[in-house]
């Protein structure tokens, strides 16, 4: 996964911020810059800059010359000396702005996607929340949607284990095909599209591990207290980390399908394109995963080398086909 890029605020974001900040400040008689910064999740200096701009803004007014009474004003001494914001005069804006249709749409689709979370088990509450977003939008939000998942019992148990500060226990079928009973302190649930993962401290491996939820079975909550919480460990940025033992395999893939393999292509891999076929490299931790990946892209991706990898894929597909001839 690519590293997070800091996103600079564009003029539209800055305007949204100003239009959002004004009603928040008007609602409060006095508030510290630090509190506002924490609430909006931005740097204190960004709040100060915005307040300085708001304090000199206003409407042209009857005279068309921005007279004093047509401008916002703040208690400057409180602001300059105590880092406190007190709005003493406000114009034009009282209340928070509506969502745009697309903004409401993004949140509604996000809620649909998260409908398997225990937090969203109350379907009536989620429906009411979506309808409020629709009513709070300036246009009809319907352009984007995501299939709703079913309530997931595993997620509810994982959440319960964190609330009770106890270990989880489950059978795990690893990506190399081994089945083991694991004891885990749950730290974070992560998802990518239709795939859900638990990241936790594995007591068997004594390390942070990532588990696919669809490979977990017989999940229970133990009475054993946890030794690690989300607060005291730093999770690696990526779900799966490369290791020195990884195998690098040369493949040919249709240019149109290359994006599907993006997670497996190492940074700086050599890439040549001939007639719509791309020759590049993928990194895998073992052939067990590679043969499944390649067999799920028939005619689209082919292993070029090493010969051992080609043979493993050929054997896997042949064994599959053989089940039908017998």
């Amino acid at each position: 996964m690519p590293a997070k890029k800091p996103t600079p605020l564009q003029a539209q974001d800055k305007l949204t911020f100003l239009l959002s900040l004004v009603p928040y400040l008007v609602e409060r008689d006095r508030v510290s810059v630090a509190e506002v910064a924490a609430h909006f999740g931005v740097k204190a200096e960004q709040i100060r800059e915005a307040v300085r701009l708001i304090a000199v803004s206003g409407v042209p007014g009857e005279t068309h010359t921005y007279q004093y009474e047509d401008l916002f004003d703040i208690a400057w001494d409180d602001f300059e000396e105590n880092d406190q914001i007190v709005i003493t005069n406000h114009v034009a804006i009282d209340d928070s702005p509506r969502f745009s249709a697309r903004e409401a749409s993004a949140l509604i689709a996000g809620l649909q996607y998260l409908s398997s979370l225990p937090e969203n088990a109350d379907r009536a509450a989620v429906a009411s929340l979506m309808s409020k977003l629709s009513r709070g939008a300036s246009g009809l939000p319907s352009q984007v949607a995501v299939e709703s998942g079913e309530s997931d019992d595993a997620l509810a148990l994982i959440r319960e284990s964190v609330a009770k500060r106890v270990q989880l226990e489950f059978d795990y079928l690893s990506s190399t095909g081994e089945r083991e009973r694991r004891r885990v302190d749950a730290l974070l649930v992560e998802s990518v599209d239709a795939d859900w993962y638990l990241r936790g401290w594995c007591h068997l491996r004594e390390a942070i591990r990532t588990f696919r939820l669809d490979r977990i079975s017989n999940l229970t909550i133990t009475t054993e207290p946890i030794s690690h919480t989300a607060g005291d460990v730093t999770l690696p940025e990526t779900l799966f980390e490369g290791s020195a033992d990884d195998l690098v395999v040369t493949i040919d893939v249709s240019a149109s399908a290359e994006a599907l393999l993006a997670d497996y292509i190492p940074d700086g891999a050599v890439r040549t394109e001939v007639d719509g076929r791309v020759r590049t490299a993928v990194r895998v931790s073992h052939y067990h995963g590679l043969k499944r990946l390649i067999a799920s892209m028939p005619g689209v991706a082919t292993v070029v080398e090493p010969p051992e990898a080609r043979q493993i894929v050929a054997d896997w597909a042949s064994a599959g086909a053989a089940r039908y001839h017998g």
Partner: peptide
């Protein structure tokens, strides 16, 4: 879009 929606949500305090 989501980032802006969240700013408007924060606006409600």
């Amino acid at each position: 879009e989501s980032r802006r929606a969240l700013l408007k949500l924060r606006s409600l305090g």
